[in-house]
Design a protein around this nucleic acid. Structure first.
Lengths: 240, 240
DNA sequence: TTGAACGTCATGTATATACAAGTTACAATA
DNA sequence: TATTGTAACTTGTATATACATGACGTTCAA
């Protein structure tokens, strides 16, 4: 009967209202007691929703006073967290395009065995994609999946969104990810596939994506031209 | 009577046990029911502690099975979240040093008025520090505080840790922060103060630090030599 | 032998109550 | 006037109970 969890519904609803500007920044949200009546639920359920809002930078809770709405405009989160290129490109300018340069099942070499924590000769999907924005080839994405997790993969899927395919079609649920950002010298592959004239550095984002059972699903290297790279992170201090 | 919140105590205790290797990765934690008896508390309190552990990458909860311990070794979090340089340098190599190049109260110029969201002629503490690791001048930190928040600041404080001073001495509690990472061309100031021979890029981390009442405490620009820069981020997918 | 059904234990969600603690406004008091 | 005290709000913590849902082993029947 329940379409979805109550506290997530409430979270999404309030988050949308904030995003659409129904509340102004620095404005106070209704109190937990009022929200409790408004949504006909218990206080703990309201509090779970409000904690999600706080965690994701929508509001700030202040004991004794209430919840105030933060200014997410001045706070824009383009590449924070686990977003995929499609979400990113959609939120930024349009005129983006994805070129699938390579798509094949390969045997894991030493580097991949280390990154994916697999035994030798494991079959691995390799997808090599170039992201083009406004006519410039900006990003090189190198994706690796265990074939045991992802049996089939096509050029068409790679051109749209691999994440959509994994989550909606294969029913895999992504739980958490670790990102590592460094700056390196461009490889010859980078120079061949991207427009790097005059740039002597490249930003490398290594992304380890895990499923709900804590097994590694995917290793991705996302190689960005430095002038077009921007990473935004919002973090709360967890405890005192 | 209560030294600290129960669920934070339990969180810290289990977190320490995991860090010290009392549990091995992939090992199962005791069930919520068992922990409930062990700590003589309610299940909800245990769950709050476990959720903190999950959020910070210590464990993964799996419905129906239990909580399994993640491998934080393979997962090292050097610069994730809100850590200060002191913590960073301590966890990495030693032989680090801080040079205070400049420390003064100034009037906000246009750039600072924008970054700190203040009216004109606001008095602002400016601290300019160079971080040296293993004899190389690697990082240039430019810190700005409103004098209304931080009345006094000394060279000695800047050499140790401004964060310690703010939190322990002034009683200011940092609540959340927004980071922005970009790559730029070095300024003449960067070239003068850092060892940048041969490097044509610099990694700029803009850090906006907020207090519990959601007011901006500090704006920091941390400018890193690209070869020594590394940023690690751990993120959970918040909802479905 | 296979497979469906069931019981048990795990975590997830929702509710209720009680009290602690921070904020604010206002009235009482010195 | 200035301070204190109190009442009425707010959010924070802790506890208890109930049921839903997922994982898994055992039992029992085909």
């Amino acid at each position: 009967m329940m379409m979805q969890n109550k506290y997530i519904q409430i979270y999404k609803q309030i988050a949308e209202e904030i995003s659409e500007g129904h509340y102004k920044p620095k404005e106070k949200l209704a109190s937990e007691h009022e929200l409790m009546n408004a949504y006909k639920t218990s206080r703990e359920t309201i509090r779970k929703a409000l904690n999600l809002l706080a965690q994701n930078g929508y509001i700030q809770k202040i004991q004794g006073k209430g919840s105030i709405v933060l200014d997410r405009q001045k706070f824009d989160f383009p590449v924070s967290g686990l977003v995929s290129f499609k979400e990113l490109a959609g939120s930024l300018g349009d005129k983006h395009q994805t070129h699938v340069e390579e798509l094949a099942v390969i045997d894991a070499d030493d580097y991949l065995m280390y990154q994916l924590q697999t035994p030798p000769e494991t079959k691995i999907w390799k997808a090599l994609r170039v992201r083009e924005i406004d006519g410039e080839r900006i990003i090189l994405d190198k994706d690796y999946f265990l074939q045991s997790n992802v049996p089939e993969l096509t050029k068409e899927i790679c051109e749209v969104s691999i994440y959509d395919y994994l989550e909606n079609d294969l029913g895999l649920t992504i739980s958490f990810a670790k990102k590592e950002i460094t700056v390196e010298e461009p490889s010859s592959e980078d120079r061949r596939l991207l427009h790097l004239e005059g740039f002597s550095n490249i930003v490398v984002v290594k992304n380890y994506v895990y499923l709900e059972d804590a097994t590694l699903l995917q290793y991705t290297e996302s190689r960005h031209r430095p002038d077009k790279f921007k990473f935004v992170d919002f973090a709360r201090r967890s405890h005192k």
